Computed example of a mutant assay.
Amino acid sequence: MTQRPALPAALPFTLDEQLCFALYSTSLAMTKAYKPLLDKLGLTYPQYLAMLVLWEADDVTVKDMATRLNLDSATVTPLLKRLEAQGYVERVRGVEDERLVFIRLTKAGQTLKRQAKEVPGEIFCAMQQTPDFLLRLRNDLTRLRATLNDYMDE
Rank of each mutant, 00 (worst) to 15 (best):
D59P: 01
K32M: 12
Q128S: 08
I103P: 10
R93W: 07
T106S: 13
F21K: 03
L19C: 02
Y88A: 03
Y24E: 04
T26S: 11
L15R: 07
T147G: 09
L134T: 05
V60T: 04
V60D: 10
A66V: 01
M1V: 06
V119Q: 13
P78M: 09
E90I: 09
G109I: 09
A146S: 09
E84Q: 15
N149I: 01
V76G: 04
D132E: 15
L11E: 11
S25P: 00
V92I: 14
A10S: 09
A74N: 10
A108N: 03
D140R: 09
Q129C: 08
P12N: 03
Q3V: 01
T26V: 02
P131I: 03
D140Q: 13
E118Y: 12
V95L: 15
T106W: 14
L134E: 06
R93I: 00
V89K: 08
L134K: 00
L83H: 02
K81W: 03
V95S: 13
K40D: 15
R82E: 08
D59H: 05
E96K: 11
R4W: 15
D59V: 00
Y34K: 02
R82T: 00
S27Y: 15
G121M: 04
R99N: 12
A29L: 08
M127K: 06
R136A: 11
E56M: 05
A66F: 02
R104N: 08
P12D: 07
R91N: 04
N149L: 11
L49D: 06
L100V: 01
L38G: 03
E84Y: 13
L52H: 02
T77Y: 14
Y24T: 00
V60P: 04
N149S: 11
